[in-house]
Simulated assay, not measured.
Amino acid sequence: MTVQPNGHLKGQVAIVTGAGSGIGRATAIALARAGARVLGVGRRAEALNETAARQPGIEPMPADITAGGVPQAVVEAATDRWGRLDVLVNNAGATAVMSLADTDADRIAGLLALNVTAPSLLAHAALPHLRAGRGTIINISSTYGHRPLPGAAHYAATKAAVEQLTRSWALELAGDGIRVNAVAPGPTESEALTAAGLPDTVVEQIKQDEAARIPLGRRGTPEEVATWIVHLADPAATWITGQVLTIDGGLELAP
């Protein structure tokens, strides 16, 4: 499933973090197909270049958004190049399988830095430009932002934080005409489990177990999630803010 080009985001400028793979890559491509100019941000230059090669209108920017000063530099890169910023998609994030018995302070700090602090600092840096154009922030949560996840509670907690940031910012910024929403994907085909350091056999077993629990019987695709991110980014979506849209094949409803 792909978003067909219709130009409804022509003239818009978007930043997408984590654009080198998965949902971030699919979102950058979908926004560009819809007419937006997209700054695709991520740690891996080669992966970002592959994203940019798939669709005109995407400019890659290799960067670690948890590093000091980088959120401001990312926003400046977009506004210096295109003169405005309309859409911030806070997609970059990490998954960590970590039971309470194995909890480690450094791993908790790393999760918070990437999943909570960096999106907050990006939104802070983007705020003047979003105010100027009555833009939008779209955060990427997870089904597990509002559903327990034994064995990975700290990951789930960071996504719960993202959902509360979304609701709180929506109220805080409504007077500026800035809409803030989130999408909460269920298990989606991506590199997240492998990036978490899990062996291939464990990753495959997790994927099978997840698919078995999802009422629609399968994991999602990045393109399916990107479609809804583009809908939320559309300036025509003028009356939706503070919402967390769960896209998970019905997993939220399952016991």
Results as ranks from 00 to 15, higher is better:
70 V>P: 04
70 V>Q: 10
74 V>E: 00
74 V>D: 00
75 V>T: 01
75 V>H: 02
77 A>L: 06
78 A>G: 05
79 T>K: 03
79 T>D: 09
80 D>A: 15
81 R>I: 12
83 G>T: 06
83 G>I: 07
83 G>Q: 10
84 R>Q: 11
85 L>P: 03
86 D>E: 05
90 N>M: 02
93 G>S: 01
94 A>C: 10
95 T>C: 14
96 A>D: 14
96 A>E: 14
100 L>Y: 14
100 L>F: 15
103 T>C: 15
103 T>Y: 15
104 D>K: 11
104 D>V: 10
107 R>E: 14
107 R>M: 14
107 R>G: 07
107 R>V: 11
108 I>L: 13
111 L>F: 02
112 L>P: 08
114 L>H: 07
115 N>Q: 07
120 S>L: 15
122 L>K: 00
122 L>T: 01
122 L>W: 00
124 H>P: 07
126 A>V: 08
127 L>Y: 09
127 L>K: 09
128 P>S: 09
128 P>Y: 08
132 A>V: 07
133 G>S: 14
133 G>H: 12
134 R>V: 03
134 R>A: 06
136 T>I: 14
141 S>W: 06
142 S>F: 09
144 Y>A: 05
145 G>L: 00
147 R>K: 15
148 P>Q: 08
151 G>D: 05
152 A>D: 13
152 A>S: 15
156 A>I: 06
156 A>G: 11
158 T>Y: 10
159 K>A: 01
164 Q>G: 07
165 L>C: 08
166 T>Q: 07
167 R>N: 08
170 A>N: 05
171 L>H: 11
176 D>F: 11
177 G>L: 02
178 I>L: 02
179 R>P: 07
179 R>H: 09
180 V>W: 04
180 V>Y: 08
182 A>L: 02
183 V>F: 06
183 V>T: 04
184 A>K: 03
186 G>N: 01
186 G>T: 09
187 P>M: 05
192 A>Y: 04
192 A>K: 02
193 L>K: 13
194 T>E: 14
197 G>T: 03
199 P>V: 03
200 D>G: 12
203 V>G: 00
203 V>N: 01
204 E>W: 09
204 E>C: 10
205 Q>N: 12
